[in-house]
Design a protein around this nucleic acid. Sequence first.
DNA 1: TCTCTATCCATAGATAATCTATACGTCTGC
DNA 2: GCAGACGTATAGATTATCTATGGATAGAGA
Lengths: 111, 111
Amino acid sequence: MTRKPELLPGTLDMLILKTLTRAPLHGYGIALSIKRLSDEVLTVEEGSLYPALQRLLLQGWVKAEWKMTETNRRARFYTLTAAGRKQLGVEVSEFEQMIAAIGRVLAADSR
Amino acid sequence: MTRKPELLPGTLDMLILKTLTRAPLHGYGIALSIKRLSDEVLTVEEGSLYPALQRLLLQGWVKAEWKMTETNRRARFYTLTAAGRKQLGVEVSEFEQMIAAIGRVLAADSR
DNA sequence: TCTCTATCCATAGATAATCTATACGTCTGC
DNA sequence: GCAGACGTATAGATTATCTATGGATAGAGA
């Protein structure tokens, strides 16, 4: 049985980076934000999210610091770096190119 | 270093099924067709293609038979089954829903 | 005839990205 | 006290790619 992913593989980093262009956020907030903006279509599982954030940190595309949330909890806030913003641009344009290409294949008329 | 995929993961089965709606084709022909229709953006490697065709056969979404090509070679031609056609519809609509959702996230304005 | 290129099939193994499941801790409201 | 939302994190399984091979045949051109 083929599993139904909650996410298109390969798009998570892009979605996280995009989310952080609005404001620094903690992991939980990033997941909520993506879910809400996508009208509940996209769900980011913790097991995908935190490894992804580690990747982004390692690449230098985000930085992190511990702070207090509005609700008075310790949380790790991630901020987009300049390199991250650039990377987002690259990923978005590659993604759009892919989507356009897939669109052309799907649009080819079949008998 | 993050690898640059030739394909959006998760979309290959859909692309193959779609290609077969036009006419039965052998593996090599499927790969060429996707490449050409996408204006060389999407490249299907053999190591992705043949396992994918095995998956589709196992699921009963395509059937295969050996025939001769126009160029006088033995080749395995794959034909879409009724179940495969139905599956294609499901995959396309899920894909479009995903793309729309990602679009909403990417469109959210950032300061 | 020889060699090169395009056509064709297929698999093994590595890699990457996701999901499932789990564990832990805190704050607020009831 | 307890439930439910908030919040971080990792281990392990799964799946889908890519890389790298290996093999075979047809046709064109030297």
